[in-house]
Structures are given as structure tokens and as C-alpha cells.
Amino acid sequence: MAKRRAVGNLMALAVLSALVQQPMHPYQMASVLKEHGKDRNMKIKWGSLYTVVQNLEKHGLVEATDTVRQGARPERTVYTITEAGRAELVDWVRELISTPEPEQSRFTAGLSVMAVLSPGEAAELLAQRLTVLERELADKRAALTEAAREVPRLFLVEEEYELAVAGAETAFVRGLLGELTSGEFPGLADWQAFSETGKVPPELAELMERGLHPQ
């Protein structure tokens, strides 16, 4: 189970990961995080960056150590990660790597109520999704191959994981679509009947009353 942290959103994790490299002011943090593609790896709300930095400072995880000025621009406060911040960063990464957490997916939500569609429409929509997934998968493979020529693998493992997840989803959608179009999907006739009449077949109604999912 995930720990309750003083500053628990992933923007804080991103900030700490940037400051462990060197002291920075918030504008520089944003530039470094964008350059490293952290906004692709975690949900980041750039508008909350200054608030997150202030919260990290409040809890002693970072500290203001300097101010800098460039030309006529306002002074910018430079922050440094503290020892407590380093310990928090390491502990947080250990948790993220070691402890699986359920992650909600819009696709999973859609699949859970797919029965409101007809089998034919579901197949059409899955075919649309598959086209997009296959194109994105090819792009990810090409990008990873290109990056691997210059970037050490240590800094590409998250891209490898995303590629593996994308490959698994593509394979799942392809298989499900194949079952629907071939007629091999179990209970397809009942599903079609429900779509046409709006009445739940007795076998499905019994399952729904008992609960479809194991406890």
C-alpha cells in the first residue's frame, strides 16, 4: 500500500528528481523536466509547479539557497534538495518500483460497459483503436531504437516499459477483435439478442445478480 507522503503528487517527485542533479530555480526545473520528457512519464500540471516547490520547502525537502537575476527579469529563487529530500526521493522511488498499485484506465472503464453496444459496433470501434495503436506502437519502436543509439539504457527503461504495455494492449485488442469478427467470442448470440431487444438473457441476468467479478 502506498505511503501517505507530506507532498504526495508526482510533480513533487519530478521536482526532487530534477534538484538531485543540481540546484535550480523553478523556471529551470520546468525546462529540464520538459527536456527529459517527464511530462510523458507522469501526470504533471505545470501551473502547480511553484505551489509544489513551496510545499516541498515547507516540509523541509528543499530549501532556498540563492537568488539569481538575468537582465531585467525579476529575481528567481534557487532551490537545493535537502538530505531529507534525498531520503524522501529514494524511498518514494523504491515504493514505486516495488509495489504495484491499481491504476484506473479509461479503456478499462469502456470495456466494463461494452455490452451497451452491439457486437458489430464494438468490433468497428476496436478496429479503429487497433489502427491507432499499431501506428503508435511502430512510432514508439522507431523512437526507442533511435534513442538507444545515443542514450544509455538506464535512462530508457521507462520507454521500454511503455512500449511493452503498448504492445500488450495492441495484442489484446487484436485478439478481442478477432474473436468478435470470427464469431468465436463466447456468448455472442446472447449479447446480440440483448442489443436488439434490450432484454437481458436469463443466463446473463443470473450472473449479474450473483456478481460478475470474483471477490
Rank of each mutant, 00 (worst) to 15 (best):
F185Y: 14
L154D: 15
T181F: 06
V165C: 10
E196L: 13
L144K: 00
R141L: 11
Q192I: 00
E179Q: 14
A168Q: 12
E134S: 04
L137E: 02
L144G: 01
L144I: 05
A164V: 08
R149I: 08
L156W: 07
S182L: 06
G187T: 03
E146D: 14
E134F: 03
D190M: 00
V151L: 09
K140Y: 10
T145W: 08
L180Y: 11
R149L: 13
T197H: 10
W191G: 03
L137P: 00
A166F: 04
G178K: 04
E162S: 10
F185Q: 03
D190L: 05
A138V: 04
D139V: 09
L176Q: 06
S195D: 09
A148L: 14
L133R: 04
L130Y: 07
A168C: 07
T131R: 14
P152H: 10
T145I: 05
A147M: 15
T170P: 05
E169D: 12
A143P: 05
K140I: 02
G178C: 10
G175D: 14
S182V: 06
A168L: 13
F185G: 06
L144Y: 03
A166T: 12
A168W: 10
G167F: 08
R174E: 11
E160L: 11
A193C: 08
E169V: 13
V151Y: 07
L154E: 15
D139Q: 15
L133E: 08
A193W: 11
A168P: 03
P152E: 09
L130D: 01
G175P: 04
L177P: 01
G175I: 03
L163N: 00
V173N: 00
Y161N: 04
A147S: 13
V173C: 07
E134L: 10
Y161V: 11
E146N: 12
E146Y: 11
T181E: 15
L133Y: 12
Y161P: 01
S195V: 05
A193E: 13
A148N: 05
L130M: 09
F155G: 08
E136P: 02
A171M: 10
L154P: 02
A166E: 03
A142F: 06
P186F: 02
E169L: 15
D139L: 13
E134V: 07
E146P: 02
A143F: 09
R135I: 03
V157H: 11
R174N: 04
L133I: 03
G187N: 00
A189F: 08
F194P: 02
L163E: 07
W191H: 00
E150M: 12
R135C: 01
Y161T: 05
R141C: 01
T197W: 12
E159W: 07
K140M: 13
F194E: 10
K140P: 02
E162Q: 14
F172E: 05
E146F: 08
E136N: 09
F185K: 01
L137D: 04
V165Y: 10
